[in-house]
Nucleic acid binder design. Sequence first.
DNA 1: TTGTACGCGTTATCAC
DNA 2: GTGATAACGCGTACAA
Lengths: 339, 339
Amino acid sequence: MPGFSAPTLTDVAKKAGVSTATVSRCLNTPDRVAKRTRDKVEDAIAMLGFTPNFGARVMASKRTYTIGAIIPTMENAIFARGLQAFQDALHKQGYTLLVASSSYDPKIEEEQIRTLVSRGVDGLLLIGHDRSSEIVNYLQEKNIPALVAWAHDPNARLPSVGFDNFAAMSELARYVLSIGHRRIGMISSWTQTNDRARARVMAVKHVMLEGGLNPDNLVLIETDYGIETGSKAFDTIISNSRLPSIVFCGNDVLAAGALKQAKVRGMKIPEDISITGFDDIEISRITTPRITTVHVSHRRMGTEASKKIIRIIEKKAFWQSTQLETSLEIRASLAKKID
Amino acid sequence: MPGFSAPTLTDVAKKAGVSTATVSRCLNTPDRVAKRTRDKVEDAIAMLGFTPNFGARVMASKRTYTIGAIIPTMENAIFARGLQAFQDALHKQGYTLLVASSSYDPKIEEEQIRTLVSRGVDGLLLIGHDRSSEIVNYLQEKNIPALVAWAHDPNARLPSVGFDNFAAMSELARYVLSIGHRRIGMISSWTQTNDRARARVMAVKHVMLEGGLNPDNLVLIETDYGIETGSKAFDTIISNSRLPSIVFCGNDVLAAGALKQAKVRGMKIPEDISITGFDDIEISRITTPRITTVHVSHRRMGTEASKKIIRIIEKKAFWQSTQLETSLEIRASLAKKID
DNA sequence: TTGTACGCGTTATCAC
DNA sequence: GTGATAACGCGTACAA
């Protein structure tokens, strides 16, 4: 089909015998056009198979109806799930989602932010509050609304929708201590550039202090996200001189890896050692035994995020952060410590 | 920051004391600009914090460097993983990924295709070959390159990168029959609009015929993707008058659900019943026992897809479909049938 | 209610 | 190697 070129507003206008302005109005403010004219125009549009040119539209109107999201990786089920919900909700409101990923690298995240901004996104969804004030300034200067998800901090510079990682993990840790555990291990994602992971570790330490334990005695391993890495970390932990009676894991996937490895090492769970996760994804329910975890509705977070960002973009409300609930899911991987 | 507006090419040109054409050249074909001039321009760009306007660029050049992908859902780990690899590879080549999802609904997929096309994507990644010829015609008319992933069919109208679902499942089924299984059950995703699922079911039936069994005796349950749905389907299967000795599952997630439910029902695996999956995602390695499955490199598929679509877009090659290898992963959930 | 005409920020085609 | 300038397709004052 050489020489092919898409029909334009002008083509439609000619065919319908009206001006381009009228065609444009039919598209954007149909009620400002007489019914008869509108019908003619709509016929012409249908006959030509016309679709408005996106680039031209952006240039003329400065709006893209596109929202960008930068997540660490889609390979983590919690982001995949939340993002899916985010995209569904966005789509219903006529917005399109542009996705990028940072591989947990702040440099890449900044680069992606700039890319998406140059593409004219109307708003941005980011994960967690950890980023340079420089890039936040940049967004402010460019006037791009940004929303933080998967974390909640009412005092941060950007609005957020998420849950309180510190509080949620504290609740779990308090319960664990209350049933007698005193020797504590933890497997976490890297805390350096991940405020969610950091908050969860801090929570465990804080609760240890509360309970009269020395937080320095926490046997902590940081590692990449994954089942295998969780298994390896578990091996490191049990090679420690003092075997913990409980291993907190920063998420369910690490917990599944740890649990698997415990079985490989011939340990009984929870008799020999207890293991907990975080997120309550399916994996925590199919292991034997099932994993005690913290329930979070990632789908709900995605939906809420879409509502909020659209509201901010359309200036229908001043922003305020919203906090989502979490709840403990006590399952068989955790048991009372009997000395 | 009222009255704020981004610096443009013209601003940069003024500041650098050159024409807009030169600035544009610095951006697109730097080697066609004298070093001295280029330095001046680059300084000006840095000072002003200039970023090219995407919409304008599209209008002038007809290229968006954007590729659209429409997948059934990001909540399925195999798509999440493949898409992540796709996006990483694309990003390295300077392309951006636009994601949409169809929820396995052909109507929604068509709508999403049109949306992405109107946004000027340079190319499209689609899943599977199942779609109306009407929409394929549409893509052809509009001259939008489209690539199919997660399926391989050299005779289809669109190029594809994927593996042969039929052959892969046949291989597994032949092995299963060779170790003595004769009463066969299967849990599959809906086959109506999913050619991958359909091919896997057909493979099992075909191999049954090959082995002298009546394919009509296959106890087949179709259901949604998920662990819970796998469990329910398993219950339905075992309520059947003739208990199968093997249950093929269309994917690992369904298999994990089935396996879990088997244990709930007090059955021993693989002594009482064997279960197999497909995809070889982590979940198949953390269940007890581990699940026999078909290994597929979804990451590799994503990477290959990105190479191929860029090559097609940049007309560096005529298209031809590429087929990826699969391999059996025989694990403890499958055992010889002893009567 | 409808039409005219300009601007949006870039790229590309010419001359120079 | 560089500069002027005409597109690109749409939205929107403004005028009629």
